[in-house]
Amino acid sequence: MANVERPLSPHLQIYRWPVTMATSILHRATGCGLAAGTVLLTWWLVAAAAGPDYYAMVQACLGSWLGRLVLFGFTWALFYHLLSGIRHLVWDTGRGYSLAVANRASWLVIGGSVVLTVLAWILAYAWK
């Protein structure tokens, strides 16, 4: 029923990318990424509950360069989805829809997520 071949409207690749388009897609993409990341988070919790030996093994995995890279990406996705999510809550009050505000807020969310991610990692290393 839904799979009939219909003419498609022009898709992503044909448009000039306004920043609001990027932030919208990134919100969904980071959401999916974070969902995948809950597996890692649960694994870490299970390791903590299992005891010192298994915890040390999981810590070694997460502490490897690949583990750190994934966790860095996870941190950024979390901050991005958080800031963009707050923006969604503001939209729900009926505010922030003008072009100028939408563009400025988009860059604020992107920039803010990068700044907060770097700050979080500086903090993690400083507490070592």
């Binding site: 010192p52 915890y55 979390l78 979080a120 993690a124």
Partner: peptide, 24 residues
């Protein structure tokens, strides 16, 4: 979403502190 804003900020700070700690 609204519940997670304070919850995750607290959790994140705690987890950052625990990130390099041992099991104990």
């Amino acid at each position: 979403a609204m519940a997670m804003i304070p919850l995750l900020l607290v959790m994140l700070v705690c987890l950052l502190k625990l990130a390099t700690g041992d099991h104990a």
